[in-house]
């Protein structure tokens, strides 16, 4: 196993596994966030957020998730550097758009922009929730953070942040539009029948993720 982590397919394997893991996180995260839309009193979302914050399984997974991000990001730079070095002299005239999609050629750019979004997102929501500066609310006799007030407050007060969050959703959508089927191809789970199917499922998944995340700030923007 010595050089597995530096072999070309070994490195891609790491990207794929971490990417698949991050996509599972994205599904859960989107699921909980969509609760924001269905109860303007905020009770439903607060219950969801409180369940996530107190559930022991989620507590265990939190550091794993952090590690997943760190590994995915570090390996993305390693891979990109290695691939960049494989072509020291470039072409003068290149018609790359004929044979591949823009997203597939610019996964690092898309990923890096997602990272910028992620940093902003962590500063706005994750740190306040963790450091406890939030007001408390009572639901069914249980005291919990009023996370709804934090999220809804931001989106109601700032058009700029609404727009930034919509852009964030779109960036992730483009990343996954290529990333979804690519992750399966990388670990060999594809063949002449499944390639087309996975590409189609990937497109649908990417649209659901992008629209799902974008619809939340849009909802607050339009309704309030």
């Amino acid at each position: 196993m010595s050089n597995f982590l530096t072999a070309s397919i070994g490195r891609k394997f790491i990207m794929s596994i971490s990417g698949l893991f991050l996509m599972m996180f994205i599904c859960v995260h989107l699921g909980v966030n969509l609760l924001l839309l269905f109860d303007d009193s905020g009770e439903l979302f607060n219950l969801g957020a409180n369940f996530m914050a107190t559930n022991p399984l989620i507590k265990v997974m939190e550091p794993v998730l952090g590690l997943g991000f760190v590994v995915h990001i570090i390996w993305s730079f390693l891979i990109s550097l290695q691939n960049y070095k494989a072509r020291p002299v470039g072409y003068d005239k290149s018609n790359a758009a004929y044979s591949s999609t823009w997203a597939s050629r610019n996964m690092l750019v898309l990923g890096a922009l997602v990272l910028v979004f992620l940093v902003m997102h962590i500063i706005q929501f994750f740190i306040p929730v963790k450091t406890g500066g939030l007001e408390a609310t009572m639901i069914d006799g249980v005291e919990m953070h009023n996370t709804y007030a934090l999220v809804a407050g931001l989106f109601k007060s700032s058009v700029l942040y609404c727009i930034l969050y919509i852009i964030g959703g779109a960036l992730l959508g483009f990343h996954l539009g290529h990333g979804f089927w690519s992750a399966f191809q990388t670990i060999g789970m594809s063949n002449q029948y499944w390639l087309k199917r996975l590409q189609c499922i990937g497109k649908i998944f990417a649209i659901v993720v992008a629209v799902g995340f974008a619809i939340i700030p849009l909802y607050f923007l339009i309704k309030f």
């Binding site: 072999a7 070309s8 891609k12 891979i79 494989a86 044979s99 591949s100 597939s104 690519s182 990388t186």
Partner: peptide, 21 residues
């Protein structure tokens, strides 16, 4: 694959350009 890596070829990022060309 070990030989391919050693000779300085890059890795696959599944852009699919190879198949088209």
């Amino acid at each position: 694959i070990a030989k391919m890596d050693e000779l300085g070829f890059g890795g696959c990022t599944n852009t699919g350009a190879c198949e088209v060309e």
